[in-house]
Amino acid sequence: MTEPLLRVQGLSMTFSRKSGFFSRVGEELRALNDLSFTINAGETLGIVGESGCGKSTLARCLLRLLTPTAGQIYFAGQDLLALPDETMRRMRQRMQIVLQNPFSSLSPRLNGFQLIAEPLRTHTTMSRKEMMDEVAALLAEVGLPSEFMSRHPHQLSGGQAQRIALARALALNPDFVILDEPTSALDVSVQAQIINLLIRLQKQRALTYLFITHDLGVIQHIGDRIAVMYLGKIVEETSSERIFANPQHPYTQALLSSTPLPDPSRSRQRIILPGTVPSAVDPPSGCSFHPRCAHVMDQCRTLYPAARQTSVGHHVSCHLYENGA
């Protein structure tokens, strides 16, 4: 088996914050707690979870915009966390991110050309003429005519702006793109355009995606494998088909059941979870999901369940599956 493009081992990120000027003990927020996963070249891993589960922190740690407190990130065989700053800066050519809201991720004062050319200017020595050609080609690739070079973000619709953001991310011909809720700010009809575009670009450029979302409908369409996160941990991970056909973790089940589907004829038993996601500053003991879980057992309150494989390629962290799985 070949080495995966990205291999994450035991990744943890703890934010500490002094609770007062004179106090020495601070609060600790465990945003990521011992995550491990891999992504193979050319595949799409979906990360699903609600706010506060750590999915955006994960994206920032992978790009080393944040420095994780523990763990290793191997990208194309190299340990990113061990790279010197300047090497890392150059490594960023190969890994890019597209953020949720293009209007906040595109600098409002730059026009389309400046935005898309910025990565080229940063990492290459192209002449302006070469850049113009390159930007025009990138625009065409994301389905925009070259007039968009002179438009500023506020002159764009949400879908057009997200296409510009995508062109910018592709400018340096990366291998790996993190998509952090790239369609959440868009209307349904535009979302469909962007999703089709993402899939087409992936095929043409052999891209590897990490697709972060809270929308299960979107991820089941585009994801190959899906990891469900809850409070800084991956609670379940398996193929896209299987997670929808046979969700095993009680949280995954509740998440699927809570997602509204446009089909009024579908009768189903809704699982409505009580309460809210606990604070990561003071997470519950044992399995962090236990206060909201309908199947809670004694051991859930004290012991975090280890991830175990319930069938080939299906990993669940839940005490329910410990015997006879």
């Binding site: 609600e50 706010s51 809270h214 809704r270």
Partner: peptide, 8 residues
């Protein structure tokens, strides 16, 4: 709101 809270 989050999906599970939305359902509530």
């Amino acid at each position: 709101l989050d999906v599970t809270i939305q359902a509530q």
